[in-house]
Each structure stands twice: as structure tokens, then as C-alpha cells.
Amino acid sequence: MDTAELEAKVIAFIASKVENIDTSTITTASKFEELGFDSLDTVQLLFDAEETFGVNFDGDEVKGLRSVGDIIDYISKHPPEDLKK
């Protein structure tokens, strides 16, 4: 999967999770809190991202994940088996 494809998939995933937000405004720079996620919502979001993309966010690194782009970067650096193809 190339970067553009991954980016589109992550943004589509985030768009499916937001409520009362114009999904066309979501970019890689969008921070979770700007999208209406409080801290507990963010934990749930990252859990759902793990399930959706087959990754496991490391306990320490997870604290640094604050934006859509952070998820994309993490998945790019730690690609699950089926994304390496």
C-alpha cells in the first residue's frame, strides 16, 4: 500500500468515527481534540484503529499519537504483514 492510499484509508476511518464534524475538513494535520475526541474517546479511537489496520500501538509511543498524521506515520513505520505487500 502506498502512502497516498494509506492516508486516504486512515482519513476515511477517522471520518467514520467523528460526530457533528464536516468530514471534508479532516486532513493529516487534524488533531484528535479538534475533531471532538476527548481523552477517553481518543483511547477508544486508537483501539479501533488497531483493530482496523492490524497494528499494535506500543504503550509508550501511543502517548505521542495526537493527530491523523501521527496514526499514518505509525502505521508506515510499523506496517502489519498484510500492508507490506
Partner: peptide, 8 residues
């Protein structure tokens, strides 16, 4: 319920 509420 919203998708988020269902998840919770």
C-alpha cells in the same frame, strides 16, 4: 444511539 454511543 450514535455509533460512538453504541461502541461504549
Amino acid at each position: 444511539l450514535s455509533p460512538k454511543q453504541i461502541e461504549q
